[in-house]
Amino acid sequence: MPTASSSVPSQGSDRKDLSRPFRKSSLDVASFVFGGLTGLATLLILAILAIILGNIIWHGWAGFSWRFVTSGTSQGMFDVDQAGVLPMILGTTARVMLMTLFVLPIGVITAVYLTEYASSTSLFTRIIRGAVNNLAGVPSIVFGLFGLGFFINFIGGGIDEFLLPNRPEPVWGKPAIFWASLTLAVMTLPVVIVATEESLKAILPGLREASLALGATKLETIVMIVIPQAMPGILTGGILAVSRAAGEVAPILFTGAAYYMASLPRALTDQFMDLGYHVFILSTQSPDIERTRPILYATVLVLLLLTLALNFVAILIRARMRRKMRVAAH
């Protein structure tokens, strides 16, 4: 690479020495150090990621088996030879699916409002965006408190008091899979909104114009042209939300996760066993951590496979979408 010094007139002489070669005058130490340090930071992060994943896959694989993912904990949670994680897989799956039912419509509609209707400069839009960003930063344990205070005590307690006044035991006013899912839906709302907004913005304005010029109303254009185009982005948002929610434990600690249940949840008001919570239990409550280590690692592996696989799919869809948008823009 030619350096600056070669093209600058040498000092003390009026003649420009154009015949000087475009060669590096000396080793550029600063460049070397700078690139080295930042590169090292990058490498270190990659190494940490590789160590964590490698450690979990290596040890997790040992305890992993078909039996492990297809059997429950009826023989005891800490029984290395018998215990499985099927109820936890089902519980976690059920709660994220239930969550999706709430968060996807609300998130997509909010994003549609923000990109298609709201004026981007108005104070009101700024407030909505600020609220979305802030919601993304609320600590997960606070969501747990919120779920308990609002969904369970206020809404659930209200239902019990006014609609089912004669039950001796609370029906809705107690932790349940329904409340856990709602709590997670509030938590993942920003994920869906941001991803959907991004894909709505990437749609070429020409398509909206084409539809409007044909006499379509704004709503018809949104429903028939804009949303179908944004589908990959909406899907990405949904998957990212699911992946984020699947691994969260703090928000469900008080809103629905059970330490142990003999049967699977049957109703929305039942509690459930959860993969992430199970990891917490196995790591901190085990009577003999050395002995239960194989099932602990295997459970972590299952949880990680679930969340990272979803993440990976979302990243792939997003990368493909971006490439397509770039092609379309030319």
């Binding site: 434990v249 917490f280 790591s283 990680l304 969340t307 993440n311």
Partner: peptide
């Protein structure tokens, strides 16, 4: 790849 780190659940980081 670096952002994949965000995909690791915090309970897994805690466990690790």
């Amino acid at each position: 790849t670096i952002e994949l780190l965000a995909g690791i659940p915090s309970v897994v980081l805690g466990f690790f």
